[in-house]
Amino acid sequence: MTRHFLGDTAVLLGRSLRHVTRSVDTVITTAIMPVAMMLMFVYVFGGAINTGTDSYVNYLLPGILLITIASGIAYTAFRLFTDLKSGVFERFQSMPTARSAVLWAHVLTSLVANLISLAIVMLVALAMGFRSSAPVTAWLSVVGILILFTLALTWIAVIPGLSAKTVEGASAFSYPLIFLPFLSSAFVPTATMPGPLRLFAEHQPVTSIVNAIRALFTEQPVGTDIWIALAWCVGILVVAYLFAMNTYRRRIA
């Protein structure tokens, strides 16, 4: 760590936020797919899905928020890949700049961009009838979980961003992540799924995160779900961070 780490990260964060504001379409594209899914599930399939709750939007939203994040982080991999390809990354590395500041700037940019996309999705959900009378503390907890989840997935995105050979390679990793909520309690209760699938669905990270957020929104007791959710988020975050840093060190060696 050099003494300039914070200052350099702030300067580079300003730079990549400018990239985001100059391609607002990326933020909107990130929001469009989850919004489309939400419209389709609520108005097309929603009538036929029995979740045991009266409002399907309320049931669906937590999963949609996670899908938003999973699709948003692909842009982080893309921006990192572009920096490497254009030589800008090497220019920073040959300067007396704190070395990991470039990575942190991209990670923080991902957080900001994803929070904006999440806010857009949230507004659409409200327009579609999503309601929650949860207290502020519950909302803050939801935001906290979403931030942790974004950071965890962003550090995963850093790995292909640094090591991909092609643009497609840099973003393809996110498809399975986008798909994961479908094999969880996000759209239908896991109790309706056949044996092995149900086993997988009930023990994969998305289910506990979705259940925790849903419980917070509906003012139900969060039980152990929130601890499992936090453990998953922190666990993925730490492992992805270590792998990303290792990839980074090999890349700049």
């Binding site: 730079r15 030589g87 800008v88």
Partner: peptide
Amino acid sequence: LTGQFAAVDEILTGRENLMLVARLR
């Protein structure tokens, strides 16, 4: 270092590119 292939940030303006490097230095 001025590498073999120009390494400029294409999304930033020329002035912003220069200011970015000045800040990082």
